[in-house]
Write a protein that binds this DNA or RNA. Structure first.
Length: 948
RNA sequence: GCCGGUGUGGCGAAAUGGCAGACGCACAGGACUUAAAAUCCUGGGACCGUAAAAAGUCGUGUGGGUUCGAGUCCCACCACCGGCACCA
């Protein structure tokens, strides 16, 4: 490949245009309030409105279009050809929308905190910042070599103190807020209403402050009530501290969130993890479960993605039911989604960790219970799931009373009941629950049918569907004969009136474990103090203390006891006033939760984003829009990234956005209006690209060999964006050849030969100028196009426009190919037709298109096209009138089988179509001597003759 | 097990219920060339035919169905990919 002759001088064209774009700041997106330079192509395109002498107002700007990529983690390995797939798609769209007249925001940045740089630091002592900066430089060079139209003036890195200052600031907002169930939104913690016993006007703030300096002083009643108030307040914050068992990974030296643990191993590296109780920061995402679920209906995401989020949130409606224990004060509350099966509850099961287990266990069962609990505790979750095939459990010796029929039923413990879901206890209905059925079968517990399947032939044993209640009559309540839905309603109502239970909604979603025992993350803007009662408590730093920078360290390892590495920085941790800094750091997700907002106003020193910028870029379309199709949407108009972020990043970011919305900092309840997942690019061997398989193709390879435009084109030509598809070196060469054809369509071959000869002798420095030697093909003339040429062009405009609107890049490219194949055969090529073609080509192959655009415009002729910058040239509109044919080809079927294709005038009516079809020679043999029973004529489409 | 997606030539793929395979790759033949590469032209689902054609039959994972007509809609199943997984 490398040895063969170049299809066209992309090696000179591509760097040339990248330099021009950079110098001209071609892709700068202008904010309201900015002054737009008069000579900027954006000002030229948008004319008087945007060329006001002073700062431009939002209403003077065209409608916005915000098109966003998921920003990458800059790894040391650099980019392979899979990375730019999504970036290419968004760039094509960005360029297309720019051509349509939108003010396009298309930014890029770096999700730069993260484990690899820290692990490297542990090994080598090199500061993660240094590693990170090197990696960013590599990534940036590679991404820039692809010619994407990013506005680099908005570049950001989550590791930049000017950025994470605001990550910490948002954390403070979470910390200083609570979720008010009355208003159903987050509010400042000051609006929190305390329970009456904690209401106290007499507690002087000043005095309690003063007292708290002296940790040894005896707590006064004032102080007691103040710390009780504090405890209450802290228990309501959206960011709170909790001592709880977390996943500890020895090798990574950190805790992991539930979602970072896969199959009992760390998602990163696949190391073993164990449960360990630790003090952690949590974010109260569960308060937003309902909104996160419901608002999915308001956004344009794929069904599968929404479904994944729904499953993750895991809403289930049911009832809590209280079971009495005879001769005891204790009550056991269970959660069930099938209250209608209460009559079939033949035993209860508590999770081994349930707090009542020890108190209710009968003396003779104590030893067995204790042993089972030990066994369970020793099992890792991996073992627990692996051994899930066989149910285990132990009888406690205690009994409970079924409230509907007064029956005494045994209480067991078993590890198939999870402590962390619902109430940690269930009523077992073995007849109608698979797990209970298995358990009951194994331990020979009674199985009672209470639901009749709709199909009488269905076996009721283990039937879990809806049906009709049977055997469900007690002394006070009967639901026998009721269909499931109604039975649920009736029994829940009855339980509520009897105060034995209530309707309840449960979620699988858990609060977000937000702290990590790592160095390379945002420090918390939190300090710990000791109260007069000797209890330590946390307090937020003031905004003026931001950013809180991580301290310098020489050793990045966590301490042996699992204390975070920041603990080693004693000077940093201990503050002059005796308080101590929080030593946990935030997880990598923190920075990516809001980066799309920072892009709107990336350099703002006084706010995370200005209100004006936020309103313009995230708000609804501006009213003065004069575009033919103003289709901006609230929020990010299009967000493209991989499925791997389907739940975590996308759920966390939505959560933060909703909090910011509730607190009045952003104007939309959802951040990302439309979201598309690009499919993975596999290696040529159809396997996932990985170093170990040796099938990784770095982007630099095709960029060197066929150029960026060909790479971009092939990324899109491989297949639909959302699909998984294999890379193909041969395929890249195919689109490269296509670009060569485009080149030859435009240029004069003798002048190119001259150029090539000059190039071999010219100094490297001067080679770029040699491009000017290449002249436009003499076949391109300033003549009006003939109808057939216009038809070819407009068919192409139509197809490319419609396909871009539908994100069907592959078929848009094939339409461009069809045009070129056709145009190659023209003896005379009208300049105006080729001009429009270049505008269509520009989003896909911008470097080549710009170069040819210049040649077309510099031609000393009467072309007079007067459009200096292709990137801002108006997108052509197709004229349907030009696509109309005078004749059409109509397939003729006999009994549904194709027998002929006839040509008829385009205005032929049904009768004419039928007549022409009957007259067809090829059709004759199939209808001769037969009766035509029926004739189906689809206007302008087809004729089908039915014979017998 | 549950949820979602995908199955079409040798390969990547395309087709508002109406000519299956656009466009491209690979391949074959031809032109240009001393030759090769590059380029340009032509061909192409399978089968059966034929000197070559034509005509014909079959064909979108499998089996049914709806329809004048199904890659497309419905039912059942199979395979692969992704997600979740004792969530009561």
């Amino acid at each position: 490949m490398a040895s063969s002759r170049r299809q066209y001088p992309f090696h000179l064209i591509e760097p040339k245009w990248q330099k021009i774009w950079e110098a001209q700041q071609t892709f700068r997106a202008f904010n309201p309030g900015e002054k737009i330079p008069e000579n900027h192509p954006f000002a030229q395109r948008h004319g008087a409105d945007a060329m006001v002498p002073g700062p431009v107002a939002a209403t003077q700007l065209p409608p916005k279009f915000y098109i966003l990529d998921m920003f990458p983690y800059p790894s040391g390995a650099g980019l392979h050809v899979g990375h730019p797939e999504g970036y290419t798609a968004t760039d094509i769209l960005a360029r297309y929308k720019r051509a349509l007249g939108f003010n396009v925001l298309h930014p890029m940045g770096w999700d730069a905190f993260g484990l690899p740089a820290e692990q490297y630091a542990v090994k080598t002592g090199q500061h993660p910042r240094q590693t990170t900066e090197q990696n960013i430089a590599t990534f940036k060079r590679q991404i820039q070599s692809l010619g994407f139209s990013y506005d680099w003036s908005r570049e950001l890195a989550t590791t930049d103190p000017d950025y994470f200052k605001w990550t910490q600031w948002i954390f403070l907002k979470l910390y200083n807020s609570w979720f008010n169930p009355e208003t159903n939104k987050a509010e400042p913690i000051e609006t929190l209403v305390y329970p009456t016993e904690l209401e106290s006007q007499s507690v002087g703030r000043a005095s309690s402050r003063a007292d708290s300096r002296d940790g040894s002083s005896v707590a006064s009643p004032h102080q007691n009530i103040e710390s009780a108030r504090r405890a209450y307040r802290d228990s309501k914050r959206l960011a709170y501290v909790s001592e709880q068992p977390v996943w500890w990974c020895e090798q990574l030296g950190t805790v992991l969130a539930n979602e970072e643990v896969v199959d009992g191993k760390s998602e990163v590296g696949g190391f073993p993890v164990v449960r360990k109780p630790m003090r952690q920061w949590m974010l109260r995402i569960t308060a937003y479960a309902e909104k996160l679920l419901n608002d999915l209906d308001t956004i344009d995401w794929t069904d599968s993605l929404k479904e994944m989020q729904r499953n993750w949130i895991g809403r289930s409606e049911g009832a809590e039911v209280e079971f009495r224990i005879p001769n005891s004060e204790f009550r056991i509350t269970v959660f069930t989604t099938r209250p209608d099966t209460l009559f079939g509850a033949t035993y209860l099961v508590l999770s081994p960790e349930h707090k009542l287990v020890d108190q209710i266990t009968a003396p003779e069962q104590r030893a067995a219970i204790a042993q089972y609990k030990t066994e369970v505790a020793q099992k890792s979750d991996l073992e627990r799931t692996e051994l899930a095939k066989e149910k285990t459990g132990v009888f406690t010796g205690a009994y409970a009373i079924n409230p509907v029929n007064g029956q005494k039923i045994p209480i067991w413990i078993a590890d198939y009941v999870l402590a962390s879901y619902g109430t940690g206890a269930i009523m077992a209905v073995p007849a109608h629950d698979t797990r209970d059925f298995e358990f009951a079968t194994k331990f020979k517990l009674p199985i009672v049918q209470v639901v009749q399947p709709p199909d009488l032939k269905t076996d009721w044993h283990g039937f879990v569907g809806d049906g009709t209640s049977v055997n469900s009559t007690g002394p006070e309540i009967s639901i026998t004969g009721l269909p499931t839905a109604e039975a649920k309603r009736k029994i829940t109502d009855w339980l509520e009136t009897k105060r034995l239970g209530k309707k309840t909604v449960n979620y699988k979603l858990r609060d977000w474990l937000f702290s990590r025992q790592r160095y390379w993350g945002e420090p918390f803007p939190i300090v710990w103090k000791k109260g007069p009662d000797g209890q330590s408590y946390h307090e937020a730093l003031p905004e003026s203390a931001l950013p809180v920078l991580p301290p310098a360290l020489t050793d990045y390892k966590p301490t042996a006891t699992g204390e975070p590495p920041l603990t080693r920085a004693k000077d940093w941790v201990n503050l002059p006033d005796g308080s101590q800094r929080e030593t946990n750091t935030m997880p990598q997700w923190a920075g990516s939760c809001w980066y799309y907002l920072r892009y709107l106003d990336a350099k703002n020193p006084t706010a995370f984003v200005s209100r004006e910028a936020e309103a313009y870029w995230m708000g609804s379309p501006t009213p003065n829009s004069q575009l033919p199709t103003p289709k901006s949407t609230p929020g990010v108009d299009l967000y493209v990234g991989g499925t791997e972020h389907a739940v975590l990043h996308l759920l966390y970011a939505r959560f933060w956005h909703k909090v910011l919305f509730d607190l009045g900092y952003v104007s939309t309840p959802e951040p990302f209006f439309k979201l598309v997942n690009q499919g993975m690019v596999l290696g040529e061997d159809n396997q996932k690209m990985s170093k170990s398989r040796g099938n990784v193709i770095p982007v630099d390879v095709p960029v060197q060999e066929v150029g960026t435009d060909a790479l971009r084109l092939f990324e899109m030509f491989m297949g639909p964006l959302e699909m998984v598809k294999p890379w193909s070196t041969k395929g890249v060469e195919g689109v490269y050849r296509f670009l060569g054809r485009v080149w030859r369509l435009f240029v004069d071959e003798p002048s190119e030969t001259e150029f090539e000869q000059a190039e071999t002798t010219a100094e490297t420095q001067r080679r770029g100028e040699l491009l000017d030697l290449i002249k436009l093909s003499p076949a391109i003339k300033d003549v009006s196009a003939v109808p057939a040429q216009l038809k070819t062009l407009h068919a192409c405009i139509k197809k490319v426009t419609e396909d871009l609107d539908g994100l069907r890049f592959n078929t848009a490219i094939s339409a461009l190919m069809v045009f070129v194949n056709e145009a190659m055969t023209w003896e005379t090529k009208p300049a105006t037709v080729l001009r429009d073609f270049l505008i269509l080509l520009q989003p896909f192959a911008p470097h080549l298109a710009e170069e040819l655009w210049v040649k077309l415009n510099l031609q000393p002729s009467t072309f007079n096209l007067q459009l200096p910058n292709l990137a801002y040239a108006c997108w052509p509109r197709f004229d349907p009138a030009l696509l109309v044919e005078s004749e059409m080809e109509i397939p003729v079927q006999v009994n549904g089988k194709l027998r002929d294709v006839i040509k008829v005038p385009v205005n032929a009516d049904n009768a004419a179509l039928e007549a022409a079809a009957r007259a067809s020679e090829k059709v004759q043999p199939f209808i001769a001597g037969k009766t035509i029973k029926k004739v189906i004529v689809v206007p302008k489409k087809l004729v089908n003759l039915i014979v017998v």
